[in-house]
Design a protein around this nucleic acid. Structure first.
Lengths: 342, 342
DNA sequence: ATGAAAGCGCTAACAA
DNA sequence: TTGTTAGCGCTTTCAT
């Protein structure tokens, strides 16, 4: 029975190459994969035939035959507040760049953060979880399937998975420490979505540093948001109405900090005269307002890079390789949005 | 000869399901793909077996067998100015969302814009070209291989390929028309990278509208940039030094417009009193400066959506399907950065 | 150094 | 309605 031929992309197959080169497909395979020994003369013939036919081996056949996949799935929550952020773009960019360097294919997958759906990992050789609100079970699933995983932007203590996170708590502490060093004591905090580890850790660091400085932590100085500019606005409006208003505020993201600045302006307040502000992220748009934002820089690109590197290592090592837990330091970037008081 | 079994991700195969369900693999295949007729009783058995084994068919085997791939490659230039833009993120987001709706896998590929390298389209079922500076030959390659393609953000006249573009020229005209209606006659233009069609068309629209209004087009009022904030800054600095300075400027992107505003402030100028500004993009960060930016909104999400829809159509139709050329309208969003003069 | 052939997991034509 | 079987294009073992 002859089937109608329907090669995927009009590609030539290894058989065509073999025929043209006058060797067996095995030899062609050897040349392509640079394994085994092939007489120089035959190698040359194959190389030429490949060139002439513009042959590109079918990944599907290759993967089917080897049982290996070099597809890396990058999972990013579709969650508005997160995905619209500077964060996501940096991540994608850095991940994409490094994947190419490692010859890995990058599959982008926007996940719904509160899903119960199991992940479809068909054909995926490795996974990068870029945020794991409510999707821990997906990591466990992947682990069960023996698929190499790395989690980025979250420190995962209790799962045998590699992760690379950022020292959010330390970053927050450095922000508060800086404000205190300028003489501030009434320091508010506009926090992000507390369901995210980053926001929780930033809040934690804020509280810890105040305690360390023996400054009382006031409930009314802490505003919880979902990272959106809308909620940042609401928080800012409340903040300015507090009878004994804070002289400084540490905001969990630059984009929210920008919103706070906008509200301040609308209310006729000046930054930093009436309020000192420190953000978090080092989002370039923090540079272009009327007053440049002081912020905590997080090494996003480095994080993505480390993540891909680690995943690549895992994918190329035998199973059961030891996992790594990495925490990257932050850096305070002092610009113009804070002033010394008293 | 027995090979050691090395199923990709520890997955069960269709054979396991067939065995457990007590039917042939063909029947399993039928159930999975919902083709052909299967007795309800058998269907139930298969469904149960699938569930029990957590079976997920191997895409590699499927694609190898069918010769079809549902992987969509989204090509985005790695070019800094472009990729850092609001534009790229919106595109990725919208494309990703719609691909999932269509059950297409999204492969993200950052391309180097001035490469001579042929694209590696192995295993790709369709391609979205999101910008095509110097990569036209890649489209031709893809077309030759009979891979469905759509180009977004560029109108491609002379290639039998579907495209969905934005009416850049019309957008520019509406911006200039608006400025003229406010009484402006000395209108400058800070253009983007003229190698991109968008920038070229915006410039073209600017010139066309001035001509239409019988306003002379002055060379010294036109500044060509690479879309970067750095070059926008240089342009702005020059602009303010012109003996007979413009009263308004149409800037080819919001991020550059923001930079112009920043320069104006540094020079002690007020917007819109000293200079009216219209941007292009409707980038949300245009909202958060001291004065909200009037801009030309481009339907990025719609564009990506139309692109994916069209690609999906092409991928699911027989070859040689007629292509579509779509141009999406823009919309002027009036905010606070322009004033009436005289 | 080379090739024949089995098999990866699946689909689809055909027979029953 | 169901099963048998021939591939899809490749890798890999084994024999030569």
């Amino acid at each position: 029975m002859t089937r109608t031929k329907k090669t995927p992309s009009g590609n030539k197959s290894i058989t065509d190459v073999a025929r043209l080169a006058g060797v067996s497909i095995t030899t062609v395979s050897r040349v392509i994969n640079k394994v085994g020994a092939v007489k120089e003369k035959n190698r040359a013939k194959v190389v030429n035939a490949v060139k002439e036919l513009k042959f590109q081996p079918s990944i599907f056949a290759q993967r089917l035959a080897t049982g290996k996949s070099n597809v890396v799935a990058l999972l990013i929550p579709r969650y508005e507040g997160v995905f619209y952020s500077f964060y996501a773009l940096e991540l994608i960019r850095a991940t994409g760049t490094l994947c190419e360097a490692f010859k890995l294919d990058l599959l982008l997958h926007l996940t719904d953060s509160h899903t119960k759906e199991p992940l479809n990992l068909r054909g995926v050789g490795g996974v990068i979880f870029s945020d794991i609100i409510g999707t821990r079970f997906q990591i466990e699933d992947a682990l069960k399937l023996d698929i190499p995983c790395v989690v980025i932007n979250n420190y995962v203590e209790d799962l045998p998975v590699s992760c690379v996170a950022i020292d959010n708590s330390g970053g927050a502490r450095s922000a508060v420490d800086y404000l205190v060093s300028l003489g501030h004591e009434r320091i508010a905090h506009i926090s992000g979505d507390i369901a995210t580890q980053a926001a929780a850790k930033r809040l934690e660091g804020y509280v810890a540093e105040l305690r360390k400085k023996h400054i009382p932590v006031k409930e009314e100085y802490i505003f919880k948001t979902d990272y959106s500019r809308g909620q940042a606005r609401q928080a800012a409006e409340k903040l300015f109405k507090i009878p004994e208003p804070p002289t400084a505020v540490f905001v969990a993201s630059d984009s929210m900090a920008l919103e706070v600045m906008a509200v301040a302006r609308e209310l006729g307040k000046n930054i930093p005269q009436d309020l000192s502000i420190v953000g978090f992220d080092d989002n370039p748009s923090g540079l272009y307002g009327p007053v440049a934002l002081t912020t905590v820089r997080q090494p996003l690109i480095k994080m993505a890079e480390e993540g891909v590197k680690e995943l690549n290592r895992l994918m190329k090592s035998p199973k059961g390789e030891a996992v790594k837990k990495i925490i990257l330091p932050t850096e305070l970037v002092v610009r113009e949005s804070c002033r010394t008081i008293k």
